[in-house]
Design a protein around this nucleic acid. Structure first.
Lengths: 153, 153
DNA sequence: TGCGCCATTTACGTTTACGTCAATTCTATA
DNA sequence: TATAGAATTGACGTAAACGTAAATGGCGCA
């Protein structure tokens, strides 16, 4: 599953306007590197989360895009919506202390943490309830004598 | 599936008691009693999970429907899809030992239990990751000296 | 020069479990 | 009888995160 003859692409690019040591990646490379699909990358762009450069129409992702993508994936991992992630990232200002961004992130994180803990409690409940039902069912299967399958909560 | 025995609402519009101890409920009553919306009850019916009788066009829920609804709600609580619940309930046979139903239920339950445990693990991961990020952010907010908000996982 | 692969844009489809009208009819009560 | 309150069906909307074509274009290579 090779895409491009590795050495040439890695060494340089003959076509693009790339002169510094920028390691730009195209969409396929990005997808592979971060375990997402092309569709996902375009989708994130469509939602304003990524802004790759273009060489003609071809997307070229810089390390900035890669950092953002990492953040997005981290955010999704901890359960933030893309909207939340965007909202937080939009506050990023390379010239300031980003206090507002950090406050927002902390605020959202606290709420998300609460949600996660609640979810965990629900899941624990479900697990207990389910385990209980399962042993009941096992009982019924064990004693094949029971004529009725009465079900109660 | 037999539903109606004989005694049916003749002309009396005063529900709640027909002749036998049938305690039929209308949709509003059901919704209140089980904490669901009217829409939900109609939706379940549309999906073949409930089959209330009709008095004209008015739905009348018997205790059988109530038992089924309890099952549905239990199923949803432990994370089964409505499709799963239906599949299991459709196997119910009041004349047999319901071995097949029980086996299916057990099978599905085992899988669902595994899913729940996996989910729990994911949530625990997320909680840890999030907690870590949060203390990092708190750090950065504490030392207002940091000029850059570098973010890494 | 044509094949094959990669990429692009646009747009509709998927999943689940309902919510939200809207228009209308039925029922209960004053 | 008039009217408020229930109930009905039908249809469209929602959320999230993409999937899945379809039609098209560019590039390298044999």
């Amino acid at each position: 599953m090779k895409l491009i003859s590795a050495s040439e692409t890695a060494a340089n690019t003959n076509n693009a306007s790339v002169e510094a040591g920028e390691d730009l990646s195209r969409i396929g490379e990005m997808a592979k590197k971060y375990g997402v699909t092309l569709r996902t990358l375009r989708f994130y762009e469509d939602k304003g989360l990524l802004n790759p450069q273009r060489d003609g129409s071809t997307r070229l992702y810089t390390r900035r895009d890669k950092a953002r993508l990492k953040l997005i994936l981290l955010g999704r991992k901890v359960g933030f919506s893309l909207r939340d992630v965007k909202q937080m990232m939009d506050l990023y200002d390379p010239t300031g202390s980003n206090t507002k961004q950090l406050r927002l992130a902390l605020d959202k994180s606290e709420k998300q943490l609460a949600r996660l803990q609640k979810q965990r409690a629900l899941i624990d409940d479900a697990i207990n309830e389910l385990s209980g039902s399962m042993s009941a069912v096992r009982q019924m299967l064990a004693e094949r004598t029971a004529p009725q399958a009465s079900v109660a909560s």
